[in-house]
Amino acid sequence: MSPLPRHPASPRTPWRTRTALLFLITALTAGCAAPAVSGSGNTDVATGGARFSTADAATAALGADVGPGVFPRTITHSAGQTRLDAKPTRVVVLDTGELDDVLALGITPVGVASPDGKVSPYLEPRIPGVTRLGPLDPLNLEGVAALQPDLILGSALRVEQLYPQLTAIAPTVLSIRPGFPWKENLRLVGAALGEEDKAVELLNAYQTKADAVRERLAGAPPTISLVRFMPGRLRLYGNLSFIGVILEDVGLPRPPTQDFDELATEVSEERIDQAAGDRIFYSSYGDPQTTGQDAVVNGALWARIPAVAAGHAQQVDDTVWFLGLGPLGADLVLDDLTRLLG
């Protein structure tokens, strides 16, 4: 098998920054979004699992056994090996990251499912005629089969236990997990679709844009705190997250309280002062009243945080910053950073 081509600028994985280090620290808290693992997913690759922190390096080793665009091909992926006799044209995707990836690569899927059965608002306008298959738990396997796909894309985190049923319907390729390996996942999807070169083009364009965001900053870059309000929990996000990777690629440092190689750490509302960055970007996963956002940002403790007092705390779109999981979402984050830091 030939692994996916590595980016010449990176000694680690192809799409991290030049100074990135191999992440070997086990994460502390639950997964990248709720629900973190569906009933048919693999907990070993969830946050806190044995395979979480190395998911990007492991995914970078997966791919096709032939050159770009050549079929037939065999794809080595998280669940094994899958042979594809011809370029897929009827693709079913089983999460936001896979949907983002195929759309960015110029492919409109025939069906889409997701953990909560919803399509992210930033992607919804792009798929007006695509069949909605609902949530992953339980996944509508009959609906998937009825679409007669020639490729199914998902992840071990979400649907590994369903792999036998899925591969009986159509050739199935699974990444390890969504989130911080989003660039490696794009390359794996590119390999499955025979669009490796397009994936490389997308990632090079992304990094060029990230570099431009950094160059627009006057003086030393500000440290960035990421705060996410969720039902029953309050998170400060670290480096092993979709948004954490983007900040690293732009060259935006993190305050010591968030400069860790994990997805996130949970804090109480009384410790919100740990969001100690020069800039704070915050969002709510759900209604701000039920996630606690309204109570915290209107409270005295929040007001006393230096970044808040300086007017440098800004709300961002949760569905993009924390649930984007692909190049289209990443591009929107870069647009936001240009606007918010300009």
Rank of each mutant, 00 (worst) to 15 (best):
Tyr206Arg: 11
Gly194Gln: 13
Leu136Asp: 09
Ala275Asn: 08
Ile272Asn: 04
Val119Asp: 06
Asp211Val: 02
Pro231His: 14
Leu337Phe: 10
Gly63His: 05
Thr319Lys: 09
Ile243Ala: 15
Gln207Phe: 09
Glu262Tyr: 15
Leu162Tyr: 07
Leu325Val: 05
Ser120Arg: 15
Val320Pro: 04
Ala191Cys: 07
Thr43Ala: 14
Thr47Ala: 14
Gln315His: 10
Ala33Pro: 00
Pro288Gly: 07
Arg216Met: 10
Ala36Asp: 14
Arg233Gln: 15
Ala264Glu: 01
Pro5Met: 06
Asp294Ile: 12
Ala264Leu: 04
Asp197Leu: 11
Tyr163Lys: 04
Arg12Met: 10
Ile127His: 06
Gly277Met: 12
Gly292Ile: 02
Trp302Arg: 06
Arg18Asn: 07
Asn239Glu: 15
Val250Gly: 02
Asp116Ala: 13
Ile224Pro: 04
Ala191Gln: 11
Leu301Met: 05
Val200Asn: 05
Gly311Ser: 10
Pro255Lys: 05
Gly111Trp: 00
Arg214Cys: 01
Arg177Met: 05
Leu236Ala: 04
Val70Leu: 12
Asn140Phe: 04
Gly97Asn: 09
Leu84Ala: 05
Leu21Asn: 13
Asn140Cys: 06
His312Gln: 11
Ile152Leu: 05
Ala192Arg: 11
Ala191Tyr: 02
Leu247Glu: 03
Leu157Ile: 07
Ala276Arg: 03
Ser78Gly: 14
Pro72Ser: 12
Ala30Phe: 08
Arg83Asn: 08
Asp211Arg: 12
Leu341Met: 08
Asp85Ala: 13
